[in-house]
Design a protein around this nucleic acid. Structure first.
Length: 604
RNA sequence: GGGGAUGUAGCUCAAUUGGUUAGAGUGCCGGCCUGUCACGCCGGAGGUUGCGGGUUCAAGUCCCGUCAUCCUCGCCA
């Protein structure tokens, strides 16, 4: 180095530019860059270093005397002072935005050294997620993740601005709150000052935002962290973020209109994408009947076809008996599916059975009766069923006979599977869909009682709940989901703002007046103190951000995601705690927990 | 809670029917090289085959158990 160590440390090491911004206009300027050593190329008399930060990469040239004076390793953090030089025609790097210039180093300071990283910081690296999560700070230096997180920031900020412009107030609600009796398992936090009592982390700010409506904050929104202690999936994390909102003195259409404006603004601002507004709308019952799903992917057809009439009069006993027993028989046409082998069709049957179907009947249609197990019930004439299915020779028809819910579910899942595997799903499009009028209640298979399809605060379509002795399964709710390309992005509803109706719904859900008082007393009380009609909605930000990036797994849009077993591999959470800490919160482990905790401790 | 897949060098993977000293690419370290840009060339280090047990003359390979990761059914008001 040309200067002594003392002069160096006295000198200002701070950057004048980022590693992504130098262009030809700066040739001749003295600049300072800060960044990480991305790659090194030692040519003996001349030494190249690519210096990286989240803005880009700039080539730094170290002449022999500087290169010989320092030791550089991968991911070292440097401050480089020097002059910007033109690269010249033959030396330009077309692949780099800064490729027309380079920095001729005059002074290099190592701000920080680095262990050899566990994997290389490359855009297209194929490292096991386990290793990436363990060393997330290295993984997060990679371009795709930096771009994803930057996109997420822009997306959320655009949404925030849109809500502010609509007159909404951003209001925070508690993270330490009380356990709810229904819904997902709560994450619990033991109280030190209230022995034997626990806070719960919120599954959503639902009750708080309703109480804000009662309090007169008629337009609320929040970027809210939510927690649910349930098993995970690629599209599900134990803690996740919602863009949550609620409005007073409105009905469904008002909520939808706000969201249509907000999302149009958000996609325009953050992605330069124009989305079609207003969004399409479809009732739940229609979605189930046509697509076998409450979140239909409408990018391809292959809709379910009801063949109940044909089945009722067919000679196939299973079909006939199903119809006679009040069930349904429906089918799908797999275009060009006649090419599928028996083995491939059996794989489809396995899939259908995963979702409750008892079997999958199939038929390769033709005028003469076609082929497959159903062919012998055609009496040599396939035309009538072909016409009803809208099938032609060369297609494959598959059928499920069962209770309506099972028929729709299994064929709906089959449809999505076939749509993907047969390449029917086109490019990602931005055709949003409101699915409306979900059932108010569902049967709980285990207890035989009733549960809310959405949540117990959802308004019924009929404030009288159908009167005394009504068939609860037939009641529709004023809830709605927002769906995009087969993904549920969010859900909401008009709420119950009448204390008496809320109590009646609790009662139908089997919550006794004593329980209501104990667990929801504060809400019922609030509703009895002047509650305006209100409605709201929340989207899963992780999902919509992932989808807007074309990703199906949430992990690449989150800085510190957890594993399928809800562990953080970087900081090794959850962990055991000292006996003293447990004592503080009045917790004693049982024998099984002690053993598991000791085993985990021994491994670590 | 159930089902499936995976686990070998820092990383990504290979290793025939159970058979010699577990290999390759990449990264790392050293040497050479004045225009590279995923530089190149030469050399080197690097292994509890996830862990525990079993079968066998012999186990990365077969069996049992266990742990971790991923996908998934249930679950997720």
């Amino acid at each position: 180095m040309s200067e002594s160590k003392d002069e160096l440390s006295a000198a200002d090491w701070r950057r004048t530019h980022t590693c992504g911004e130098l262009r030809s206009e700066r040739v001749g300027c003295k600049v300072t860059l800060n960044g990480w050593v991305d790659s090194r190329r030692d040519h003996g008399g001349i030494y190249f270093v690519d210096l990286r930060d989240r803005y880009g990469v700039t080539q730094v040239v170290l002449r022999e005397e500087i290169a010989d004076s320092i030791k550089l390793g991968p991911e070292y953090v440097l401050s480089v002072r020097g002059e910007v030089a033109a690269r010249g025609e033959s030396n330009r790097n077309e692949g780099l935005p800064t490729g027309d210039v380079e920095l001729i180093a005059e002074r290099v300071e190592v701000l920080s050294t680095s262990e050899v990283p566990p994997f290389e910081v490359l855009d297209d690296l194929d490292t096991a997620i386990e290793t990436r999560l363990r060393y997330r700070y290295v993984d997060l230096r990679r371009g795709p993740l930096q771009r994803n997180l930057a996109h997420r920031s822009r997306f959320i900020n655009a949404m925030r601005r849109a809500f502010e412009d609509e007159g909404f107030l951003e209001i925070e609600t508690p993270i330490l709150t009380r356990a709810t009796p229904e819904g997902a398992r709560d994450y619990l936090v033991p109280s030190r000052v209230h022995p034997g009592n626990f806070y719960a982390l919120p599954q959503s700010p639902q009750i708080f935002k309703q109480i804000l409506m009662v309090a007169g904050y008629d337009r609320y929104f929040q970027v809210a962290r939510c927690f649910r202690d349930e098993d995970l999936r690629a599209d599900r994390q134990p803690e996740f973020t919602q863009l949550d909102m609620e409005m007073s003195f409105v009905e469904e259409e008002d909520v939808w209109a706000v969201w249509e404006r907000v999302l149009a603004h958000t996609f325009r601002e953050s992605m330069d994408v124009e989305v079609t507004v207003p969004f399409a709308r479809m009732r739940y019952a229609e979605a189930m009947e046509r697509f076998g799903s409450d979140k239909p992917d409408r990018r391809f057809g292959m809709e379910l076809v009801c063949v109940g009439e044909w089945a009722a009069s067919s000679e196939f006993g299973v079909f006939r008996d199903t119809i006679a027993g009040g069930g349904r028989v429906m089918g799908l046409v797999v275009s060009g599916g006649a090419e599928l082998s028996r083995k491939q069709i059996e794989a489809l049957e396995v899939l259908a059975k995963d979702y409750g179907a008892r079997g999958l009947a199939w038929w390769k249609p033709a005028d003469d009766g076609g082929a497959g197990p159903l062919a012998r019930f055609m009496n040599g004439d396939g035309a009538p069923l072909m016409e009803q299915m809208g099938a032609t020779e060369g297609d494959l028809c598959v059928f499920v006979a069962d209770r309506a819910a099972i028929v729709q579910r299994s064929l709906g899942e089959l449809r999505v599977h076939l749509g993907r595997s047969r390449g029917l799903v086109g490019e990602t499009s931005w055709e949003f869909l409101w699915v409306t009028h979900f059932p108010l209640f569902e049967r709980d298979e285990e207890s035989g009682g009733w549960t809310s399809s959405h949540h117990p605060f959802t308004a019924p379509e009929d404030w009288n709940l159908g009167g005394e002795g009504a068939d609860l399964s037939s009641l529709a709710s004023r809830s709605y989901d927002l769906v995009l390309n087969g993904w549920e992005l969010g859900s909401g509803s008009v709420r119950i703002h009448r204390s008496d109706v809320q109590q009646r719904v609790f009662e139908l859900l089997g919550i006794t007046p004593a329980e209501q008082e104990l667990k929801f007393g504060f809400l019922l009380e609030a509703l009895a103190h002047g509650a305006p009609p209100h409605a709201g909605f929340a989207v899963g930000l992780d999902r919509i951000v992932a989808l807007s990036l074309g990703l199906e797994n949430l992990r690449d849009t989150l800085p510190f995601p957890k594993t399928t077993s809800a562990a953080d591999l970087m900081c090794a959470a959850p962990s055991r705690v000292s006996a003293e800490q447990l004592g503080d919160v009045h917790i004693e482990l049982d024998a099984a927990a002690r053993a598991a905790s000791d085993a985990a401790g021994a491994e670590a």
